[in-house]
Design a protein around this nucleic acid. Structure first.
Lengths: 180, 180
DNA sequence: GAATACATGTAAAATGTTACATGATTTT
DNA sequence: AAAATCATGTAACATTTTACATGTATTC
């Protein structure tokens, strides 16, 4: 799957593994993320499959950059993938809920402290979606002149916003429930 | 992580790998799931670490069952884990959003068809949370006399409900946005 | 007669995380 | 003086998925 995230970005412009990590962190991290090391190994695999090609870009006073470019085969693979519909619901994993499910023997105060901490974290996250992420999308959209693309990016930002609002609401409900 | 899901269930009652899969499917699948094969291999690892013990239960006209029981060490490990607070936000992966993010070159109708299909799937899921899942929790709670535990289980069911409602709302917004 | 439920597992492949290794430049 | 940024990668480990393998009993 990470494969397609990388092809997707490279379909806009060439980039190094380092660049791709930065791009993901400010754009898709809301619904797709990866460690730097995994990005490097996946890029290598993509080059082996001839979906991308790379060349070294020498730099003074900085380590050399290995810059990747998508190939025609890569573009086709990407397009095939986007055109293929998903016919199932994605299943989630939420460590916090798992813990909560099995926490009946715990002191209620311990649970409540954890939920309150989560609320703080999610409130900070929500602000990020509403300010930084929104700004980043605007910047990209205007600088590259891609209003149409930005429309889709905005829908994914909106998901993050709605999700986090929902999460906070659930935390509020749950906290109230356990306090009473 | 699956480790703790299994210990959590075994802390209530002994069970086979098959039983545990059934239990997860009707209770935690909303926020934690696993394949049958992974459950078997994880149980084996847990027994090696002496967190569970197993014995064979012979059956007539059915394959024998290997039934697992949690040990004192297992109970301690589980309790330690539940008491340990999570200090970060869980990061999600949503294939659909990833695809959407990179779908600007696609015909809008292809995207819309996919989103409408997702809406159907999520509506069915929502009903499930509101009927079957709710009923299952009630049944467990009364049959085992654990109103306190059921309170927590109910909060995780509620999360599934709120999440799915949010998802449908986002789909509606996004569909409208792309239609216009 | 076919599909599902019951019941267990192994092996291989894919995916993802953590730790290690290096080293200059810039910011705090 | 310490921490963060720039920049790349490998190795080991852990987790998860998919495929394989087997066979009876019950339900549709």
């Amino acid at each position: 799957m990470l494969k397609y995230a990388l092809l997707g970005f490279l379909n806009y412009q060439t980039a190094s593994g380092y660049d791709l990590k930065q791009l993901m962190d400010v754009s898709t991290s809301n619904f797709w993320h990866a460690k730097q090391s995994q990005i490097y190994t996946t890029l290598k695999a993509l080059e082996k499959d001839a979906l991308v090609v790379s060349h070294i870009e020498p730099q003074e006073s900085r380590p050399n950059r290995r810059v990747y470019e998508i190939t025609t085969a890569g573009q086709e693979d990407l397009k095939n993938w986007t055109a293929q519909p998903i016919t199932e619901i994605e299943s989630r994993k939420e460590k916090l809920l798992l813990k909560l499910f099995f926490s009946a023997q715990l002191e209620p105060e311990i649970i409540l402290t954890e939920l309150r901490l989560q609320k703080n974290l999610h409130q900070a996250q929500l602000e990020k979606y509403q300010t930084i992420t929104k700004e980043v999308i605007k910047q990209f959209a205007s600088s590259l002149d891609m209003q149409e693309d930005a429309k889709l990016w905005e829908t994914t930002r909106r998901f993050g916003e709605l999700y986090t609002e929902m999460y906070i609401r659930w935390l509020d409900e749950t906290i109230e429930n356990l306090e009473g």
